[in-house]
Write a protein that binds this DNA or RNA. Structure first.
Lengths: 336, 336
DNA sequence: GGTATCATTGTGACCGGTCACATGTTTGTT
DNA sequence: AACAAACATGTGACCGGTCACAATGATACC
């Protein structure tokens, strides 16, 4: 059953013009005489006419729809990126269809269905480096990566300036007098984890502090992995006085592990995370962190994507956005 | 630029059949001889042909796309619903486009663009009762509400059994020996808040405990409102020994407010929430709660929606799903 | 053998827009 | 006054599928 039986031809005949003229009024592509436009607009309003998008797609080859492939939506960081991207799309009159893929098989299936069947004009991809899924990304098709810098540089992207994040977080701890600074990284297969670690190392080196391999542990972004990492630190002869966790979830895991050992935070241990997820402000004590502007990342990624879908060519842009230090209760000057 | 220059006619001519036969192979609608099918499939594979969805939409009037209108995606409960809905759609070969609307103007704009222009086959709506937005819901168009029971019963819906949630939560506190049980509700314009309150009152009445108006406060689902409500309880002569908060966010707010006054949880105060958001397990102490299966709600809502889009008619189904009590550390037997 | 039924395949029209091009009218320039 | 340029509008073809219906051949039944 078609909801709208009103077609452009109905409008044309009611306004006494050709369908092409109606099309011109709708799309504002060509000059139309003022009174003609008024007549057409009256007919449109009168009949309650709406152009049907699939007919436009068929004729133009553009759908006004973009897809975002995301590992999941329930993670706050991903959801925020998607939300920012949606706003970017809406601002351009387009829509965003989000699809979750948590393994490379689902990922390639989605690409197949979304891209090959012409459902969307472009693809926004979040986090394609967790496994091999990036290798399924379509060539010769508008693609932008959000929240991850691509390994080999052949894709456009918008991401946090991760080296700077690692550097800033470590600097904050150094400024508080800490010298025994451990770090919990994300999976090192992901560039952002590598980059944040690099920034951490840079800051320590500048401060003349030697790197300790046993204070560099790798988690998987989850709170549980942060918890486990703290337990591994506990086996060292010496405990760090501060921990830089590469995201808030792991930071909260560290926090809880230390808390359950009776360690006082921030008096005995300072902890800093990255992201500023809502839970960060509600942790006990509230977490100091580096806030990502997920919103802006998603929005700018979508802008790049739309431009790419329209222009076709254009050089590869890789934007890096800054983070903002949010000092709360989980970091404090070291006590001697 | 069209990505796929391969059309059904190319496949037809390569396979030496008509386009209709190719169509039959693709859609498996009619009988096709075994060898013909093989020849067509070979041609499809050979040319890398994919049916273009917009062409199919134009011809059939169906898009295979559904929209979910949601207040925001960054709230875990909404995101989970959307995720469940997406799985439901994918299982039927359809896609889900999620669009956020946080006021009735955006809401009506979305309806206009999504429904009137034929972009989607149906609408999944989350939480349309916060203001007047439900009044913009399109008539004669497939609509299902997820996570909210409709006020007047003219829409299909899948939601939690909210009376039972309120009842169970209160029963749990009663079973621990509590008699001074306060509650923090969501906005009473929303039916689910009313229903949960009703369940709470039922349980108290069954236990022969009189209702106290000063122990029934209304928040707005946010942690901040939970915090504020606890402060208002503090002004009473007498403090409750247990609080039933209608969602986890408010429960955490109550928890933090009480904690900051030096009240020990659960020794002096038991707190129970609803939802089981991820933060619940990481609160200090970990929150006892009633878990909603958002996943199932979203998925079943999408199933209803797809059925509705295909059948047209069918009676109005309003499903109610149960919640599951998750006992953690924030509730304990009352100490005399 | 004749006819009804079924399986298999093909044909033209159509879905509702837009594109390229053609046409007629007005305005501007020398 | 003559001609070019700009403006305003219309026409036929086309985008890539599917629908309704027709046509063919094979099988079944009487």
């Amino acid at each position: 059953m078609n909801r709208s039986r009103v077609t452009i031809r109905d409008v044309a005949s009611q306004a006494g013009v050709s369908r092409q003229t109606v099309s011109r009024v709708i799309n504002q592509t060509d000059n139309v005489a003022e009174d003609t436009r008024a007549r057409v607009e009256a007919a449109i309003a009168n009949l309650g006419y709406r152009p049907q998008v699939w007919a436009q797609s068929l004729a133009t080859g553009m759908t006004g729809l973009f897809a975002c492939i995301v590992p999941n939506l329930t993670d706050y960081t991903f959801a925020s990126l998607v939300h920012g991207a949606e706003l970017g799309a809406r601002a351009a009159g387009a829509f965003l269809l989000s699809a979750t893929a948590d393994n490379d098989k689902m990922f390639s299936g989605l690409i197949d269905e979304l891209v090959m069947s012409g459902r969307v004009d472009g693809l926004l991809v979040i986090n394609p480096f967790v496994d091999e899924r990036y290798s399924y990304l379509p060539a010769d098709f508008p693609v932008v990566l959000a929240g991850a810098r691509p390994r080999h540089g052949q894709w456009q992207s918008v991401a946090l300036n991760d080296e700077d994040v690692g550097y800033q977080a470590t600097k904050h701890l150094l400024a508080l007098g800490h010298r025994q600074i451990a770090t919990v990284t994300g999976p090192l297969t992901e560039d952002c984890a590598q980059d944040r670690r690099y920034g951490y190392q840079q800051a320590l080196q500048e401060a003349g502090i030697p790197l300790r391999a046993d204070w560099l542990l790798t988690g998987d972004w989850s709170a549980a992995s942060g918890y486990a990492c703290w337990q591994r630190f506990g086996r060292s002869r010496e405990l760090p006085t501060a921990v830089f966790a590469q995201n808030d979830q792991m930071a909260i895991g560290v926090l809880r592990a230390a808390y359950s050992q009776g360690i006082q935070i921030p008096q005995q241990l300072s902890i800093i995370g990255v992201d500023d997820i809502p839970m960060a402000a509600y942790a006990t004590p509230a977490l100091t962190t580096l806030r990502q502007d997920f919103h802006a990342i998603g929005q700018q990624a979508m802008q790049l994507l739309i431009a790419q879908a329209q222009n076709q060519h254009g050089q590869i842009v890789q934007k890096r956005l800054p983070a903002q230090l949010i000092v709360r209760e989980s970091t404090a000057p070291i006590v001697f």
